[in-house]
């Protein structure tokens, strides 16, 4: 399906919006023709990206804003999570060794793993004064 879809929403950096964003993402995915399975995977990836922004970029300051953009381009869904807090540096991301993780009962760092596993690409960057996490998934 080749269509131009664009939706932008702004939320406060508060975890109370997570379930709402999960539902919104799931509905958008359904509308764009993703399978239910992919829709749930994408929704979870967005949940994780927003959670990381609240926790790490804004250090739980719920007065700050997070923008979420949903864009379709060349048969891909691009979801951008934008903020003006502390940029997440891709080279500082830690990808846990899952074997060791499970053997030693470790905690944390799983959100990024889920994002990578469920999306085609996960990118971090900055434009103007804002920083973003960009999630991409091929439609279909």
């Amino acid at each position: 399906m080749d269509r131009n879809f664009y939706l932008k929403t702004t939320i406060k950096a508060d975890t109370e919006y997570l379930t709402l964003i999960n539902k919104l993402t799931s509905d958008i995915c359904k509308m764009l023709g993703f399978s239910e399975e992919n829709g749930k995977n994408i929704s979870l990836a967005v949940d994780e990206a927003v959670t990381n922004t609240i926790k790490h970029a804004y250090k739980m300051d719920n007065k700050k804003d997070i923008e979420i953009e949903y864009i379709t381009k060349e048969n891909e869904l691009i979801i951008k999570i934008l903020h003006t807090g502390i940029p997440i540096s891709p080279d500082k991301l830690v990808f846990p060794d899952m074997k060791e993780y499970l053997e030693k009962y470790k905690k944390g760092g799983l959100g990024i793993m889920l994002m990578i596993k469920f999306m085609d690409s996960v990118e971090y960057g900055s434009e103007n004064d804002r920083h973003f996490c960009k999630l991409t998934k091929k439609i279909g």
Partner: peptide, 8 residues
């Protein structure tokens, strides 16, 4: 649904 927070 369960996110990584639940697994943690």
């Amino acid at each position: 649904y369960i996110s990584s927070a639940g697994l943690g």
